[in-house]
């Protein structure tokens, strides 16, 4: 297979390039149904790359830790699960930056103390007493905000959707390098399978979430509510960046498809959707119901 060959996964739609690696399985879904196809000339070249910082052995170690640290409602097989198909893959993502502007409005709560007089009956006599109560005065506030959105990373892969990438972010972007073929030699790289426009829309969405948190921290007062804002983005820029991910298949049940575990190839942060054990959940629900029923019966039984 030449370095310029691409393979397309028939199951999940990822398009992959194998730089000196020999594999015929899709790293995302472990499907063997990958087809060779010529490299598409119209695809954008990566601008940047973040290098792997976690070795395969270290990724396996983290995967084992992940299987051992699942909650009680997780499928019992996870503890004894075998880890198959450890693949390091450079995932295509867009690194988005822009200048954001927002107009916001909120209700700001300013607390104050008031002395209240109230009547209390002591030994059959009514006495007037006072107490200090805290009240909140609500004032509306409107304002403008402007700032940079600097490090928004969104997946450009259909194989690994943005929500899964977000779960293993952040990447240390101070270690960003300009892309060169030499840096990905020996690794699998995936070609972007999402349109730039869709990725920019995802990035704006992430930027908006960040903006919401920024404005939330900006608000004065003892409390605030009803924070609303309209925003727009200018001078937008998106660069294609390859980010390192270890993708592992966790086989917990011979009958079922494996769980996919994603590990940030730079920081080692792991994420996977552990299968739940319905049996364990059902037992827990039944036990809780039994305890409540028992308590009710006990309460009724008293004189």
């Amino acid at each position: 297979m030449s370095a310029d060959d691409s393979l397309a996964c028939q199951d999940c739609g990822a398009t992959l390039r194998f730089h000196g690696t020999r594999t015929t399985r899709c790293p995302y879904c472990a499907s063997p149904s990958v087809l060779a196809r010529p490299a598409s000339p119209d695809l954008p070249n990566p601008d940047f790359v973040v290098a792997f910082g976690i070795s395969e052995a270290s990724a396996l170690e983290r995967a084992k830790n992940w299987t051992r640290s699942r909650g009680v409602f997780t499928h019992g097989g996870i503890l004894r699960a075998s880890i198959e198909d450890v693949r390091g893959v450079y995932l295509p993502a867009y690194l988005y930056t822009s200048i954001g502007s927002a107009s916001y409005s909120a209700q700001i709560g300013e607390d104050y103390q008031e002395i209240e007089t109230y009547a209390e009956t002591v030994n059959g006599r009514t006495e007037m007493r006072t107490r200090t109560v805290t009240k909140t005065e609500w004032r509306s506030l409107t304002g403008e905000w402007q700032g940079y959105f600097r490090d928004v990373v969104v997946s450009a892969s259909r194989g690994l959707p943005n929500a899964e990438l977000e779960a293993v972010e952040p990447f240390d972007l101070r270690l960003l390098r300009r892309f060169s073929e030499a840096q990905v030699q020996g690794w699998i790289t995936e070609e972007p399978s999402m349109q730039l426009g869709a990725c920019v829309a995802d990035a704006r969405q992430e930027a908006m979430q960040g903006l919401g948190q920024t404005l939330d921290r900006l608000m004065p007062g003892d409390s605030h509510s009803d924070l609303q804002f309209t925003s727009h983005f200018e001078r937008e820029q998106a660069s294609l960046v390859l980010v390192p991910c270890w993708v592992l298949a966790v086989r917990y049940d011979k009958e079922k498809p494996p769980v996919r575990l994603v590990i940030n190839g730079q920081t080692g942060k792991a994420w996977g959707k552990a299968p739940l054990s319905w049996l364990r959940i059902a037992i827990a629900v039944l036990l809780t119901a039994a305890v409540i029923a028992g308590l009710v019966v006990a309460a009724r039984g008293r004189p």
Binding site: E110, Y112, E137, R139, L141, E144, Q146, P220
Partner: peptide, 22 residues
Amino acid sequence: VSWAADSDAGSGSSEWAPHSGQ
């Protein structure tokens, strides 16, 4: 600089009132 703060200017029942500016 986009700012927001409480101050005594324009305060009502509370001794603080919110302000913002850019």
